[in-house]
């Protein structure tokens, strides 16, 4: 019996979202009176693996194979399901990120295990098993009951507090069978945006909308972002107009983000945009229109022309950064 966590690594390193998963899983494991086990796929150092104990893993199974060089959904889901069977997992937890969304559904079918995605809280009860998830793109939550013996959850990012300790995890090599025939996709090229903060990882995001009036004014957004160590984003009209690239579009049909601090600069606050940012801990809005809907969801607001407010914001944050 156990709670199994897919501990994803990025170039051999673990990130905050993995630690959130483990802390979350550990709390469920306590309720079930069992242990928390991680499954890692790829080359990760033993130190890095045993450090996962700091965040709640009792044991980490480590699988690596030279044939694995990119995310092959068939292979990854097969390895995790073999691990789940081996450790008698009652609950399997993945991140609700791109990888989790790609693998968890395959795992659900393999193990005939009910899957709840975009989970935002600990289960309200484990018998019956009931847990809260996001629904209607941030406009509501749903409580979902899982009826199968094994339960799979994907946890929304930034929705669980990390608990840290001095504990270390036992690291074990894991043997799983994977077939050459399961490798059906081949990565021919990779394109990385360098020097930019990845939006899904960003603690602070500075986002510009139509109120910025044109791409030539984006220098100020970028400067504010660089002062704060923030990522840059934009609203849908901005990416549709081609002022900024599509991968900066935040909102219902773009990226869903949940940073600690979100700046909506010259964004009116259409329901589709709000749906993509409502998970943010704190929202600051700057808009010329005092009645703009963005002020209904913001925590702090400034009425004014974004292009005039930005320089004083940059100045004030620079001063703050110099002092702290």
């Amino acid at each position: 019996m156990s709670v199994l966590v897919y501990t994803e690594n990025w170039d051999g390193k673990f990130k905050k979202s993995t630690f959130e998963l483990l802390s979350y899983a550990n709390e469920i494991a306590k309720k079930l009176n069992t242990e928390t086990i991680g499954i890692s796929i790829g080359n990760v150092s033993t130190d890095e693996l045993s450090n996962l104990g700091n965040y709640g893993a009792n044991k980490v199974l480590s699988f690596s194979d030279s044939r694995i060089s990119s995310l092959e959904n068939t292979v990854f889901s097969s390895i995790i399901s073999q691990a789940a069977i081996k450790v008698g997992a009652q609950v399997i937890i993945l991140s609700n990120n791109l990888t989790g969304k790609a693998i968890a559904p395959r795992l659900s079918v393999k193990l005939k295990a009910g899957l709840v995605s975009a989970v935002v809280a600990l289960p309200s009860s484990v018998e019956p098993f009931e847990v809260k998830k996001k629904a209607f793109t941030g406009s509501a939550f749903a409580n979902v009951k899982v009826n199968s013996a094994i339960k799979i959850l994907t946890l929304s990012q930034n929705s669980y507090q990390i608990n840290q300790s001095e504990d270390v995890a036992i690291v074990e090599n894991f043997e799983a069978t994977i077939n050459n025939a399961d490798f059906k996709t081949k990565v021919t090229d990779t394109q990385k945006t360098t020097g930019k903060i990845i939006l899904n990882d960003a603690e602070i995001i500075v986002s510009g909308g139509r109120g910025m009036k044109g791409p030539e004014n984006w220098g100020a957004i970028e400067e504010l972002a660089s002062v704060l160590g923030a990522g840059t984003a934009c609203s849908r009209p901005v990416s549709d107009e081609g002022w900024r690239s599509h991968d900066e579009h935040v909102g219902q049909t773009g990226k869903i983000v949940a940073p600690n601090l979100y700046f909506a600069i010259g964004i009116s606050g259409a329901v589709q945009h709000v749906a993509g940012v409502s998970g943010s801990k704190c929202i600051v809005a700057v808009n010329t229109d005092k009645d703009a809907t963005v002020f209904e969801v913001a925590d702090y607001g400034i009425v004014g022309d974004a292009r005039q407010v930005l320089p004083s914001l940059i100045e004030a944050f620079k001063e703050f950064k110099a002092e702290h």
Binding site: S108, K112, A113, G114, L115, V116, E130, K132, A135, G138, S139, A140, F141, A142, N143, V144, K145, V146, N147, S148, S278, A285, F295, E296, V297, A298, D299, Y300, G301, I302, V303, G304, Q308, V309, S312, L313, E315, A316, E319
Partner: peptide, 25 residues
């Protein structure tokens, strides 16, 4: 394998605190 038991709406946000554009500090 799963069933939706019930739904809830998010807690309404507190009022937005307005700050003068001249006083961003």
């Amino acid at each position: 394998l799963t069933e939706f038991v019930n739904y809830e709406l998010p807690q309404p946000k507190g009022k937005c605190k307005m700050i003068s554009a001249d006083n961003v500090k």
